[in-house]
Amino acid sequence: MRVLFSIVIFSLAVIFGFAGYTRFGLPLIIPAPPPQEAKISGEMTMDQFIALGKTVYEGKGTCTLCHNSLGRAPLLEQVAQVAPERLADARYKGEAKSVEEYIHESMVKPSAYVVAGFGKKGTNDTVSPMPDVSGGAINLNAAEMAAVIAFLQDVGGVEVTAQIPTGEAAAPAAEGAAPAPAPAADAKEALVKFGCNTCHMHPLIAEGGDMGPDLAQVAATAGKRKPGMSAEQFIVESIIDPNATLAKGFEPDMMPPDFAQQMTVAEMNMIVAAILNKDAAGGKPQ
């Protein structure tokens, strides 16, 4: 038993020695959190877009892991300047016509032109070791690649031709396919999402318009507007078929008729509940 005890103490001392050395003897490096996808909106200025390109270039794109002064891959600061020479080079195998296209092609088909000395070993500079940045671990979307192109053009001192994707184009670019917009989380969000506040006023929204009836007043009267219809039913009908019952003093065809297609059931319920001042799922009590 005494032997066993000694062995246990000895072993514990050894492993705690290792753990202690790790904790106190080595510098603590906190790994970076997993990267987020960059958000691109149409309101960006070109400067912001170039800055985004720089962030992607140094961050998510991981370009600087290899394109740095250690000589793993060519430096890219002048790539926009030398692109025309590359395109004229006999070894060029791609289809790009402009600087922008050339840089884009280099990102998705790196082997189209391999800078001498940087090819995969044994391929005589015909195959590039670089991955396709639009897939794999890097997985840049079209907008992010455009930002990187803008950044490289800016750094290279040539005219920036890469376009900022507009809001409509950027959203699909973010996932590579057209995703449904995220459903609203609560009534307030839903009211804003469908633009109710453009025309209506409601206590949940700070500023509302006066082109439609004040929604704060609807709760009191909705149940009595149409015989045989509850307040909920009336509001739902008014949302999906706005012209069915018009409030006094308001014009027909002002409200979009397609909310039935746009809203999820949950969103509709939240809005109805909010108009009725009820605390429905996700709705905030008054």
Partner: peptide
């Protein structure tokens, strides 16, 4: 838990 744990944390786990 997709983040990478630090070395001392891993050492503690291993211990």
């Amino acid at each position: 838990d997709a983040y990478t744990p630090t070395l001392p944390f891993a050492a503690l786990m291993v211990t």
